[in-house]
Design a binder for these strands. Structure first.
Length: 560
RNA sequence: UGGCCCAUGGUGUAAUUGGUAACACUCCGGUUUUUGGUGCCGUCAUUCAAGGUUCGAGUCCUUGUGGGCCAACCA
């Protein structure tokens, strides 16, 4: 147990302050409140990690509450997908709740508000109501129905509820202040009538509560102490509190809403509408395309739950606008996989390498360490023979001092194998290299302990035996957008910044051990990057998705 | 035009609540290495600006500048 002084973010400061004044540690309760109208993305992941992380830190319950007040947009399919994603991230909710569980209570409270003269039925069109709302700089005007008799409001509200009134003919509004500086306080709509089937309540209800009327009261019903949301809800806080005042009993916990800045990731977009466009216009293959910033997309890309959680924790939380560079995310997946992923050899851009002094037709099984970062990872056997494949860019006929790879007259080590020396090349009519010939030092076998095997050579190459090679499909993914912040340009549509090279599909040649892998298995292609087996793989054709390349300090030197 | 929120290195956060700028990422050097990976070491800010209060200000006050949010029967 270390006693290091940890620094707190502003959310934790709020909780600590409450803990030292008004709240007991056992009072604490949080919630994650998604609307089931789409798939969760990396932004939600941050919020999930924040709320559930707080639950873990304070040993407090965290409810999963679906904010399902709009039957026009919400579906069971999304409920299921959201639950799957949260579980995959590794979090457990205390209780699964739905705002629709509270429709009756909300209705009863609303009736009471009407009776108290604090709410009224407005029978105007939405356009008229919008016009009377005023603007941020000018006050609104009262609805002609604002002072309609309580009995009349009660009766109309009843008709709305029963569906005997036409859909959309009336709304219930809170009677607050049409001249408030806060637009949300200008008699906000509490209920609208919608004659649509709801994914849970079916056709029982013809009226549905609005977000503001629902959210705070739901927090109150669940006795949530801290209701964290993003900054754009800050103006809603006044209304959140006003609604709470109408039902609050002071022997109960009074929830408080506090706001944090949503965390934006560079080189992607995250709004549901924009993500939907990427799917609809065929830029990606679906919501779980490995280039999508959805949780399911990241999962298919090869990201681990731990890497996403560590990412969320490490970027912290604040109140200012931000744009977090994807390199933060990439760092976290590399860090996680570096410890967990077995190293394997796969050649992506092959050129034939012939070892002239190696016996024809012989196969030698070499021992290869699975992961030098993990002592318990064990080892495997890799076939070696006279004819190999190496990467085309691992050879140059002539090279300068900075080039550590194979060239004529120079030596390199074949990983887990022998030291070889470049001897000659064979070219086709166009001058392309079709074959490289080399000789090997039979005493230099890796791990043999001989003096020759201990020799230091500058370069080490990965390789694969040509006759044993397993062809695999490899999908090389890159960032989806060429711009750090594609959707904040005033004049340009985010679609203009799509990276035309975000996916390249090639055939790679893998060492035979890879045929044992299953979907979602993650490996490091030695010297290349981290890859994951895609779910589209079949028993006789394996597909790999590139999660992220290894850092490459050679690339920069080579470009000079 | 009004109200509210925000402002710390290239990026994201921190600073014992007024005590002399910390952590991570990136970048660039160096070192280790049978992955040009990993690891290790090092360089990169006086805190938007100008005033003020104070022995002392990133923390408090004033003004300015810049950015964000606010007019859905969405959440």
């Amino acid at each position: 147990m270390s006693e290091e002084k940890e620094s707190l973010n502003f959310i934790e400061h709020i909780i600590e302050d409450d803990l030292s004044s008004t709240h007991g540690i056992d009072d604490l309760r949080f919630r994650f409140p998604p609307e089931p109208n789409g798939y969760l993305h990396i932004g939600h992941a941050s919020s999930i990690c924040l709320n559930f992380g707080l639950g873990l830190k304070y040993d407090a319950p965290v409810n999963l509450r679906f904010d399902d007040t709009n039957p026009a947009k919400e579906e069971q399919e999304f409920v299921d997908a959201i639950k799957t994603d949260i579980e995959w991230l590794g979090f457990k909710w205390a209780e699964e709740r739905y705002a629709s569980d509270y429709f009756q209570q909300l209705y009863d409270w609303a009736v009471q508000l009407i009776k108290d003269g604090k709410a009224y039925v407005d029978s105007q069109t939405s356009i008229a109501i919008a016009e009377q709302k005023g603007t941020p700089t000018s006050p609104g005007t009262n609805s002609p129905f604002r002072n309609r008799p309580i009995e009349e409001s009660l009766e109309l509200f009843e008709q709305m509820k029963n569906g005997t009134a036409a859909e959309g003919a009336h709304v219930l509004r809170a009677k607050i202040d049409m001249s408030s500086g806060n637009m949300l306080m200008r008699d906000p709509v509490m209920y609208r009538s919608l004659h649509k089937s709801h994914h849970r309540t079916g056709t029982d209800w013809k009226i549905f509560p609005m977000y503001d009327w629902t959210h705070g009261e739901s927090d109150y019903i669940e006795q949530v102490t801290h209701s964290f949301c993003t900054l754009e809800f800050l103006p809603h806080r006044e209304l959140y509190n006003w609604f709470l005042d109408q039902v609050y009993s002071n022997d109960k916990i009074r929830p408080k809403q506090r706001e944090f800045a949503r965390r934006n990731l560079s080189h992607t977009v995250v709004s549901k509408r924009k993500l939907a466009r990427l799917v609809e216009e065929g830029v990606v293959t679906g919501w779980d395309d490995p280039r999508m910033p959805t949780i399911s997309g990241l999962r298919r890309r090869g990201y681990t739950p731990a890497s996403i959680r560590n990412f969320a924790d490490s970027i912290g939380v604040g109140k200012r606008e931000n744009l977090i560079d994807v390199s933060h995310l990439e760092y976290n997946i590399r860090e996680d996989l570096n410890k967990k992923a077995d190293r394997v050899m796969v050649v992506l851009d092959p050129v034939k390498l012939v070892i002239d002094n190696y016996p024809e037709g012989e196969t030698e099984w070499l021992e290869a360490e699975n992961n030098q970062e993990d002592e318990n990872a064990g080892s495997r056997q890799v076939p070696f023979s006279k004819n190999l494949f190496i990467e085309r860019n691992d050879f140059k006929e002539e090279a300068n001092r900075k080039y550590f790879r194979l060239s004529l007259g120079r030596e390199v080590r074949l990983k887990n194998g022998y030291i070889i020396k470049g001897e000659s090349v064979v070219k086709d009519a166009e001058g392309n290299i079709t074959e490289i010939h080399c000789t090997y030092d039979p005493d230099s076998k890796s791990g043999s302990g001989t003096e020759a095997s201990m020799r230091k050579v500058k370069g080490t190459l990965h390789w694969v035996s040509a006759e044993h090679a397993l062809p695999v499909e490899v999908r090389l993914y890159d960032r989806l957008f060429t711009e750090a912040s594609p959707d904040t340009h005033k004049e340009k549509d985010f679609m203009e910044f799509i990276n035309p090279n975000s996916l390249e599909v090639i055939t790679g040649y893998a060492e035979p051990s890879l045929k044992e892998l299953r979907p979602e298995d993650k490996v490091q292609f030695q010297r290349l990057g981290y890859f994951v087996v895609d779910k589209d793989s079949t028993s006789n054709s394996i597909i790999f998705n590139r999660t992220v390349p290894l850092r490459d300090s050679w690339k920069k030197i080579a470009e000079d």
